[in-house]
Amino acid sequence: MNRFVLKHGTQSLFALLCLLVLVFFLARLTGDPTDLYLPMDASIEQRAEFAASHGFDDPVVVQFGRYLAGVMRFDFGDSLFQGRPAIDAVLAAFPVTLKLAGVTMALSLVLAIVIGSLAAWRPRSIFDRVASMLTIASASAPDFWVAIVAILVFAVSLGWLPTSGMGSPAHWIMPVGVLMFRPLGLLTQVVRAAMIGALAAPYVKTARAKGAGKSRIIFVHGLRNAMLTVITVAGDQAATLINGAVVVETVFGWPGIGNLMIQAIQQRDFAVLQACILMTAFAIFFMNVLIDIAYSRLDPRVRTS
């Protein structure tokens, strides 16, 4: 692997470690789990026994050390609430979120490239103005509200789509549609700006002087260069997509990682919370590496320098 990817990889890995430390100690600050799981009138002995059996009576540093050792073995401890390994709960929820985010991202990218390129070909045309307005509007929409309005219209009033759950393709329409709002708006603006930049670049002049036609200029010369910017932004967006996924999963009752995490926070389920965060962070880390690889494939200047 080349140095660019390696350098970025180690940087993200470092971030990952910092996050792990941060989250462990923050989670400890949320409160004493013995208060939550034992009845109010539990005796001091009962409390001590509970704490000892779960290792809560050791110093925090020891607990953290034990935790870290566990992480190395993909052992995040048992869920206090579900009575099964935390990793199992997370692995069950993970594919749901991954599919939701993946489908949303793919659709947003394709649409953004088409709309953004068309808008960039003739800036300030009617199409460009309308597209710009709509993309800014969609990037400004609060996703939870869009979700509620969508339920109100399509499920409650019209009865076309189911309100919650997953299963049939119809269940996918509203969650994906809502989740697409922000990334689509943002990516379209980015594609447009990057394409305008690329089409104004001197090498496009050269291409025109060679006798190249419109489609060659847009797709071969413009888009290929604009993609460099688009890929970077799409990577950042993919991380923020998880933000939206939390909201969308909550509203539409999808058993994804966002839902699981909110539950874990409410139940003070350390093990699950930490496993969720770590898995999410790892997924984002992995995706960043993939994006760096894609970037270095697309940009020869990074590849060789």
């Binding site: 002049k205 002087a209 290929r224 460099l228």
Partner: peptide
């Protein structure tokens, strides 16, 4: 045919 002033920016960097 035409040749421009600054060859670095007038050549497409990704090809």
């Amino acid at each position: 045919a035409m040749v421009f002033q600054d060859p670095l920016t007038h050549l497409n960097p990704v090809y």
